[in-house]
Amino acid sequence: MISLLRLAAQAEALRWKRTGRGVAIQAALGAGAAVFGLMLLIMLHVAALIWLAQGRNGAVAALIVAAVDLVIAAVLGWLAARHAEDPIQVEAQRVRDDALKQVGDTASRAMMLAPLLRSRNTKKGLIGAAVTAAVIGFIAKR
Rank of each mutant, 00 (worst) to 15 (best):
G22C: 05
L79E: 07
G55F: 09
Q26Y: 01
Q10C: 08
R18G: 01
L52Y: 10
G37V: 01
I88C: 07
L40C: 07
L44P: 03
A27R: 11
I50A: 15
I25T: 13
V23L: 15
R15Y: 07
I25D: 14
V23F: 10
Q89G: 07
A48W: 12
M39K: 12
L4H: 06
V90E: 13
A66T: 03
A92C: 06
L63K: 02
L14M: 10
N57L: 13
A53R: 08
G32E: 02
A66E: 01
R18I: 00
L7C: 05
I88R: 11
A80G: 02
L41Y: 04
G32F: 01
L41T: 11
P87K: 04
L41C: 09
N57E: 11
A67K: 00
W78E: 07
L5D: 15
L70N: 04
W16Y: 08
V60G: 06
L79H: 01
L79Y: 04
G30S: 10
V65I: 12
L7N: 12
A48N: 12
A24I: 01
K17I: 00
W78S: 09
A61C: 06
G37M: 00
V71W: 07
R6I: 14
E12S: 11
D86W: 02
A80I: 02
L49A: 15
Q54S: 12
A31Y: 06
W78R: 12
L14D: 11
L70H: 07
M43G: 13
L40W: 07
N57Q: 13
G37L: 00
A48C: 09
A24F: 05
L76P: 01
L63V: 08
L29N: 02
E85Q: 11
V75A: 12
Q89D: 14
W51L: 14
V71Y: 08
L52D: 08
W78N: 06
G20I: 00
L70P: 04
L52M: 10
Q89K: 09
A31W: 05
P87Y: 05
L76Q: 02
G77F: 00
H45S: 13
A92N: 03
A34G: 11
G58F: 10
L76A: 07
D69M: 14
A47Y: 03
W78T: 10
M39Q: 14
W16Q: 14
L63P: 02
V90L: 11
L5N: 13
R82P: 00
M43D: 11
A8Y: 02
V90I: 09
H83Q: 12
G32T: 02
L29D: 03
G30W: 00
W78I: 06
A81G: 13
A61K: 12
V60Q: 08
W78D: 05
A66D: 03
V68T: 14
A66C: 02
V35P: 01
L5C: 08
V65C: 10
R6Y: 06
A34F: 03
A13C: 00
G58M: 06
A11P: 04
G77S: 13
R18L: 09
I42S: 12
V46S: 06
A31V: 04
Q54V: 11
Q54H: 11
V23M: 13
G37T: 04
G55L: 09
L63F: 15
M39S: 11
A24E: 15
G37K: 00
L76N: 01
V75P: 04
G37S: 06
A9C: 04
G22Y: 03
K17A: 13
A13W: 00
Q10K: 14
R21G: 09
L76F: 05
E91P: 02
